[in-house]
Amino acid sequence: RIKYGVVAMKDLATDILTWDQFYLSGRLQKPVRVLVDNWDIRMVNTVNLKMAAAASLLLLPKEFTEHDLYAKICSLSYMGDIRMLFAEDKYKVKKIVDGSFQPFQLMYRPLIQDYISEGILKMSDYRQQKAFKQIYLQDCGVSATNELFSSLPRMIQRRLQGRFTSNSTEIPTHIPTRALVPSKEVAAASVRTALRRRVMVSSARQAACGLLASGGLVAARYLGKKMSKALSTRCLTFF
């Protein structure tokens, strides 16, 4: 009935700041309810939110809606997730954003304003008639792209340089502290590849841990319900 976990605060902070596992950091990119907090995780998580916004902007086209931005942020932690292939609702991201739009705004509107002040984003004069969600235009030039890319975790920047190793979090001294990308397309490809590989490993590990922790019968029932729900959305789409 309730999903919960136990984690050392040091491990939580490491994942938030480096996307080392991209599991807890992915969850904290979405609205959550914090019950107990000894390290002011909300403050630490602002770094995570900025990196999520930067990665999403690199993956989005020049023109997008506010809903598009939150949907892309929400989808980051599902890229490469093996469970999305057979055991998740295909509309899960949209439902999360639709049901938590205002909390998303509270989390990311300050960052959007910062990007507007820096000239990376600007607001369009056109607004959707029904949804009334602001349209944004982003600067897709090399300078703005590198500004966004340089704020991402080192594991993504090192992927671009071909020296990334999944078992290492150390930054080799011969790698520049700031990676440069020639275009937005190259930056987006690096983000997409790095996150898919990281999420694939993390989701497989969590699926195995869930099976061991809950036991075969409980896990089978849970998986059956998830698969049934996922199948129903696909059948509705088909018919």
Score class of each variant (00 low, 15 high):
I96H: 08
E88T: 13
S117Y: 08
I82K: 08
A131K: 14
M84G: 09
D139E: 13
L137P: 00
A87N: 10
D114T: 07
R127H: 05
V93E: 01
I135P: 00
Q134K: 14
K122N: 10
Q128C: 06
R83T: 13
Q128R: 12
L106Q: 12
L121K: 03
S77W: 03
K130M: 11
Y115S: 08
G99K: 09
Y78A: 11
L106C: 02
F101R: 02
G141I: 02
Y91V: 01
D98E: 13
S143P: 00
Q105M: 11
D98V: 03
C140L: 03
I116Y: 04
D125R: 09
A144L: 08
K95C: 00
I112Y: 01
L76E: 01
Q134F: 04
G119A: 07
K94A: 12
Y108G: 04
K90S: 13
D81A: 15
D81N: 14
D139V: 01
S143M: 11
Q102Y: 14
C140Q: 07
D139F: 02
Q113P: 00
Q128H: 13
R83Q: 15
Q105C: 15
R127A: 06
E88Q: 13
K122A: 07
L76A: 05
Q102P: 00
P103D: 07
Y136H: 10
I96G: 02
L121M: 08
